[in-house]
Nucleic acid binder design. Structure first.
Length: 244
DNA sequence: GCGACAG
DNA sequence: ATCTTGTCGC
Protein backbone atom coordinates (compact mmCIF):
# COMPACT_ATOMS: atom_id res chain seq x y z
CA UNK A 1 0.00 0.00 0.00
CA UNK A 2 2.39 2.66 1.23
CA UNK A 3 6.01 2.44 0.14
CA UNK A 4 5.70 -1.18 -0.99
CA UNK A 5 9.02 -2.93 -0.63
CA UNK A 6 11.29 0.04 -0.02
CA UNK A 7 11.79 3.39 1.61
CA UNK A 8 13.37 4.62 4.80
CA UNK A 9 10.22 4.69 6.90
CA UNK A 10 10.59 7.80 8.94
CA UNK A 11 8.86 7.51 12.25
CA UNK A 12 8.36 11.16 12.91
CA UNK A 13 8.21 11.49 16.67
CA UNK A 14 5.49 14.07 16.81
CA UNK A 15 4.18 15.23 13.49
CA UNK A 16 2.99 18.80 13.49
CA UNK A 17 1.23 21.14 11.05
CA UNK A 18 3.24 23.14 8.55
CA UNK A 19 0.74 25.77 7.50
CA UNK A 20 1.24 28.13 10.38
CA UNK A 21 1.43 31.88 10.83
CA UNK A 22 4.84 33.23 11.84
CA UNK A 23 3.57 33.74 15.37
CA UNK A 24 2.32 30.15 15.60
CA UNK A 25 5.58 28.87 14.16
CA UNK A 26 7.59 30.71 16.81
CA UNK A 27 5.35 29.29 19.53
CA UNK A 28 5.90 25.79 18.18
CA UNK A 29 9.66 26.30 18.18
CA UNK A 30 9.57 27.28 21.83
CA UNK A 31 7.56 24.17 22.61
CA UNK A 32 9.86 21.79 20.72
CA UNK A 33 13.25 23.29 21.57
CA UNK A 34 13.42 21.44 24.92
CA UNK A 35 13.43 18.16 23.01
CA UNK A 36 16.81 18.78 21.47
CA UNK A 37 19.42 16.45 22.95
CA UNK A 38 22.75 18.26 23.26
CA UNK A 39 24.88 15.37 24.46
CA UNK A 40 26.49 12.50 22.55
CA UNK A 41 24.10 9.69 21.78
CA UNK A 42 25.46 8.42 18.51
CA UNK A 43 25.73 4.83 17.45
CA UNK A 44 28.23 3.53 14.95
CA UNK A 45 28.52 5.93 12.02
CA UNK A 46 28.60 4.23 8.63
CA UNK A 47 26.54 6.53 6.45
CA UNK A 48 26.18 10.29 6.70
CA UNK A 49 23.90 12.60 4.75
CA UNK A 50 24.08 16.17 3.54
CA UNK A 51 20.83 18.13 3.37
CA UNK A 52 20.27 21.25 1.29
CA UNK A 53 17.52 23.09 -0.54
CA UNK A 54 17.29 25.12 -3.71
CA UNK A 55 14.46 26.93 -5.49
CA UNK A 56 13.01 26.92 -8.96
CA UNK A 57 10.41 28.98 -10.78
CA UNK A 58 11.40 32.13 -8.97
CA UNK A 59 10.94 30.47 -5.61
CA UNK A 60 7.57 28.89 -6.24
CA UNK A 61 9.07 25.41 -6.20
CA UNK A 62 11.22 24.08 -3.36
CA UNK A 63 13.79 21.49 -4.32
CA UNK A 64 15.25 19.46 -1.45
CA UNK A 65 18.21 17.13 -1.77
CA UNK A 66 19.60 14.50 0.57
CA UNK A 67 22.96 13.01 -0.39
CA UNK A 68 24.22 9.97 1.48
CA UNK A 69 27.94 9.25 1.64
CA UNK A 70 29.92 6.47 3.28
CA UNK A 71 31.81 7.26 6.49
CA UNK A 72 34.61 7.95 6.91
CA UNK A 73 35.46 7.49 3.23
CA UNK A 74 32.90 10.04 2.07
CA UNK A 75 32.13 8.11 -1.09
CA UNK A 76 28.73 8.87 -2.72
CA UNK A 77 26.12 6.19 -2.02
CA UNK A 78 22.71 7.66 -2.78
CA UNK A 79 21.00 10.93 -3.74
CA UNK A 80 17.32 11.76 -3.49
CA UNK A 81 15.70 14.88 -4.90
CA UNK A 82 12.21 16.06 -3.92
CA UNK A 83 10.35 18.97 -5.48
CA UNK A 84 7.19 20.54 -4.09
CA UNK A 85 5.35 23.87 -4.07
CA UNK A 86 6.84 26.43 -1.69
CA UNK A 87 4.34 27.22 1.06
CA UNK A 88 6.15 29.46 3.49
CA UNK A 89 8.13 32.67 2.90
CA UNK A 90 11.68 33.20 4.03
CA UNK A 91 11.53 34.72 7.49
CA UNK A 92 14.75 34.95 9.51
CA UNK A 93 14.41 32.48 12.37
CA UNK A 94 11.70 30.42 10.66
CA UNK A 95 13.72 28.83 7.87
CA UNK A 96 12.73 25.28 8.79
CA UNK A 97 9.06 25.94 8.12
CA UNK A 98 9.95 26.89 4.56
CA UNK A 99 12.40 24.09 3.81
CA UNK A 100 11.64 21.03 5.95
CA UNK A 101 8.46 19.83 4.24
CA UNK A 102 10.44 19.13 1.06
CA UNK A 103 13.41 17.79 3.01
CA UNK A 104 11.23 15.23 4.78
CA UNK A 105 9.88 14.09 1.43
CA UNK A 106 13.42 13.54 0.19
CA UNK A 107 14.36 11.63 3.34
CA UNK A 108 11.41 9.33 2.86
CA UNK A 109 12.75 8.47 -0.56
CA UNK A 110 15.99 7.01 0.81
CA UNK A 111 16.51 3.26 0.69
CA UNK A 112 17.80 3.49 4.26
CA UNK A 113 18.21 6.27 6.79
CA UNK A 114 21.70 7.69 7.47
CA UNK A 115 23.37 7.67 10.89
CA UNK A 116 24.06 11.40 10.90
CA UNK A 117 22.76 14.51 9.15
CA UNK A 118 24.78 17.56 8.10
CA UNK A 119 22.35 20.43 7.53
CA UNK A 120 22.90 23.66 5.65
CA UNK A 121 21.86 26.12 8.36
CA UNK A 122 21.94 26.57 12.12
CA UNK A 123 21.23 24.00 14.83
CA UNK A 124 20.66 25.61 18.23
CA UNK A 125 22.57 28.77 17.26
CA UNK A 126 19.14 30.33 16.91
CA UNK A 127 17.00 32.89 18.79
CA UNK A 128 14.86 30.13 20.28
CA UNK A 129 17.54 27.40 20.02
CA UNK A 130 15.62 25.66 17.27
CA UNK A 131 17.23 26.23 13.90
CA UNK A 132 16.59 23.94 10.94
CA UNK A 133 19.16 21.31 11.97
CA UNK A 134 17.63 21.05 15.45
CA UNK A 135 14.12 20.91 14.01
CA UNK A 136 15.05 18.15 11.57
CA UNK A 137 16.93 16.24 14.25
CA UNK A 138 14.01 16.28 16.66
CA UNK A 139 11.46 15.28 14.01
CA UNK A 140 13.52 12.36 12.72
CA UNK A 141 15.31 11.58 15.98
CA UNK A 142 18.53 11.32 13.99
CA UNK A 143 21.84 12.84 15.11
CA UNK A 144 22.17 16.18 13.32
CA UNK A 145 24.70 18.98 12.95
CA UNK A 146 23.98 22.53 11.82
CA UNK A 147 26.57 24.05 9.50
CA UNK A 148 25.85 27.61 8.47
CA UNK A 149 27.80 29.63 5.93
CA UNK A 150 26.91 32.87 7.70
CA UNK A 151 25.78 33.92 11.15
CA UNK A 152 22.20 34.21 12.32
CA UNK A 153 22.84 35.34 15.89
CA UNK A 154 25.70 35.33 18.37
CA UNK A 155 29.07 36.93 18.99
CA UNK A 156 32.58 35.53 19.02
CA UNK A 157 36.24 36.42 19.16
CA UNK A 158 38.49 36.39 16.12
CA UNK A 159 39.22 32.86 14.88
CA UNK A 160 42.88 31.98 14.12
CA UNK A 161 43.58 31.50 10.42
CA UNK A 162 44.59 27.85 10.61
CA UNK A 163 42.28 25.00 9.66
CA UNK A 164 40.87 23.38 12.79
CA UNK A 165 40.87 26.58 14.87
CA UNK A 166 37.55 27.57 16.40
CA UNK A 167 35.96 29.93 18.93
CA UNK A 168 32.74 29.58 20.86
CA UNK A 169 29.71 31.42 19.51
CA UNK A 170 27.84 33.17 22.32
CA UNK A 171 24.38 34.56 22.92
CA UNK A 172 24.91 36.59 26.08
CA UNK A 173 26.77 34.18 28.37
CA UNK A 174 25.54 31.01 26.72
CA UNK A 175 27.61 29.00 24.23
CA UNK A 176 25.32 28.23 21.31
CA UNK A 177 27.81 27.05 18.73
CA UNK A 178 31.30 27.25 17.27
CA UNK A 179 32.85 29.38 14.55
CA UNK A 180 35.14 26.89 12.87
CA UNK A 181 37.88 27.33 10.30
CA UNK A 182 37.72 24.29 8.01
CA UNK A 183 40.33 25.69 5.61
CA UNK A 184 43.33 27.86 6.41
CA UNK A 185 42.73 31.52 5.55
CA UNK A 186 39.18 30.82 4.37
CA UNK A 187 36.04 32.28 5.95
CA UNK A 188 34.90 30.04 8.86
CA UNK A 189 31.59 28.17 9.13
CA UNK A 190 29.06 28.31 11.97
CA UNK A 191 28.70 24.90 13.61
CA UNK A 192 26.05 24.10 16.20
CA UNK A 193 24.33 21.16 17.80
CA UNK A 194 21.39 19.84 15.84
CA UNK A 195 20.51 16.75 17.85
CA UNK A 196 22.03 13.86 19.78
CA UNK A 197 25.60 15.14 19.97
CA UNK A 198 27.76 17.65 21.83
CA UNK A 199 29.28 20.77 20.30
CA UNK A 200 32.77 19.31 20.65
CA UNK A 201 31.74 16.19 18.73
CA UNK A 202 29.99 18.31 16.10
CA UNK A 203 33.17 20.28 15.49
CA UNK A 204 35.20 17.09 15.28
CA UNK A 205 32.80 15.52 12.78
CA UNK A 206 32.60 18.62 10.61
CA UNK A 207 36.37 18.69 10.33
CA UNK A 208 36.42 15.04 9.30
CA UNK A 209 33.66 15.64 6.77
CA UNK A 210 35.42 18.65 5.29
CA UNK A 211 38.98 17.40 4.62
CA UNK A 212 39.53 19.62 1.60
CA UNK A 213 36.87 22.25 1.11
CA UNK A 214 35.18 24.81 3.32
CA UNK A 215 31.92 22.88 3.57
CA UNK A 216 31.42 19.22 4.56
CA UNK A 217 31.39 16.92 1.53
CA UNK A 218 27.81 15.72 2.13
CA UNK A 219 26.56 19.31 2.08
CA UNK A 220 28.62 20.23 -0.95
CA UNK A 221 27.12 17.38 -2.90
CA UNK A 222 23.57 18.12 -1.81
CA UNK A 223 24.13 21.80 -2.55
CA UNK A 224 25.33 21.02 -6.04
CA UNK A 225 22.29 18.89 -6.76
CA UNK A 226 19.89 21.38 -5.21
CA UNK A 227 21.02 24.64 -6.76
CA UNK A 228 23.78 24.37 -9.30
CA UNK A 229 21.47 22.13 -11.34
CA UNK A 230 19.15 25.00 -12.20
CA UNK A 231 21.54 27.86 -12.72
CA UNK A 232 24.91 26.48 -13.69
CA UNK A 233 25.57 23.52 -15.93
CA UNK A 234 25.30 20.05 -14.53
CA UNK A 235 27.50 17.28 -15.85
CA UNK A 236 26.84 14.16 -13.80
CA UNK A 237 26.08 10.57 -14.67
CA UNK A 238 23.07 9.07 -12.89
CA UNK A 239 19.41 9.69 -13.65
CA UNK A 240 16.88 11.98 -12.03
CA UNK A 241 16.75 10.36 -8.61
CA UNK A 242 18.67 7.94 -6.44
CA UNK A 243 22.07 7.41 -7.97
CA UNK A 244 25.72 8.05 -7.18
C1' DG B 1 12.59 53.66 17.81
C1' DC B 2 16.75 51.69 15.07
C1' DG B 3 19.53 47.77 13.25
C1' DA B 4 20.20 42.61 12.40
C1' DC B 5 18.51 38.98 10.01
C1' DA B 6 20.41 30.96 8.43
C1' DG B 7 18.71 30.05 3.18
C1' DA C 1 17.97 31.25 -1.96
C1' DT C 2 17.98 33.71 -6.77
C1' DC C 3 18.83 37.30 -10.63
C1' DT C 4 23.99 37.30 -13.29
C1' DT C 5 30.17 37.86 -16.28
C1' DG C 6 34.16 38.30 -15.73
C1' DT C 7 37.99 38.47 -12.82
C1' DC C 8 41.78 38.07 -9.24
C1' DG C 9 44.49 34.70 -6.61
C1' DC C 10 46.42 30.19 -4.89
Amino acid sequence: MDNPGSGADLKLRHVHPWDLSPAEARALQMRLAPRVVREDRLGEIRRVAGVDVGFEEGGRITRAVVSVLSWPELAPLEDVVARSPTRFPYVPGLLSFRELPAVLEALEGLSALPDLLFCDGQGIAHPRRFGIAAHLGVLTDLPAIGVGKTRLIGTHEAVPEERGAWRALYDKEEVIGAVLRTRTRVKPVYVSVGHCLSLETAVELVLKAAPRYRLPEPIRRADRLASQSTGRDQVLHGGVCSSP
